[in-house]
């Protein structure tokens, strides 16, 4: 009886974890692109619409020689995995997902602060990543209300 209830409930929330998994894939692709960009040392001209190069070549772009984007890629992959497991009924993983995206959103907020007030340049790829984090966080928050209804 308990099991049936669990399955019914998990089906009800499965759409949100599935959506979260798709969104996390966007973040993963973005982070992989930025990691390759960093490791290849690819040169992109500076232009008037953004300061991507300023951000990507700043001292904040890597930690201990490892590109920041690589940490992002790992974080998005973990978020994706947790969301997929949750989408297939493992509700505990959705709790971990909530905790993970909260931490990611906090980290993202700090990176946006660095871009706006310290580096004083905006990288659109980094802002996309921040947007993805925020979206994942919003999905996690919405799911709380969804379940409680």
């Amino acid at each position: 009886m308990n099991e049936i209830e669990n399955v019914t409930n998990s089906n009800a929330v499965a759409k949100l974890p599935l959506l979260a998994a798709v969104v996390a894939l966007i973040g993963l692709s973005d982070a992989i692109y930025l990691t390759i960009h960093h490791l290849n040392g690819e040169m992109v001209p500076c232009n008037v619409t953004g300061g991507c190069e300023t951000v990507l070549t700043s001292s904040y772009a890597e930690i201990g020689g490892i590109p920041l984007a690589a940490f992002g890629a790992v974080a998005y992959f973990i978020a994706f995995s947790l969301a997929i497991l949750a989408a297939f009924g493992n509700r505990k993983m959705w709790l971990f997902f909530g905790m993970q995206v909260t931490l990611m959103t906090l980290a993202s907020s700090y990176f946006v602060y660095l871009q706006l007030f310290v580096i004083k340049a905006i990288c659109q790829y980094c802002m996309l990543s921040a947007g993805v984090c925020l979206t994942l966080f919003i999905i996690a928050v919405i799911s709380k209300f969804w379940k409680s209804r």
Binding site: L25, L28, I32, Y33, T35, I36, H37, L39, N40, E42, A73, F77, F80, S81, I84, L85
Partner: peptide, 23 residues
Amino acid sequence: AIIGVVLLAAIGIGGWFLLKGKP
């Protein structure tokens, strides 16, 4: 299986671009 496929794809695509050139 889905997680495994995504992990392999991520490593494969990332590695390919890293070795062969630029995205």
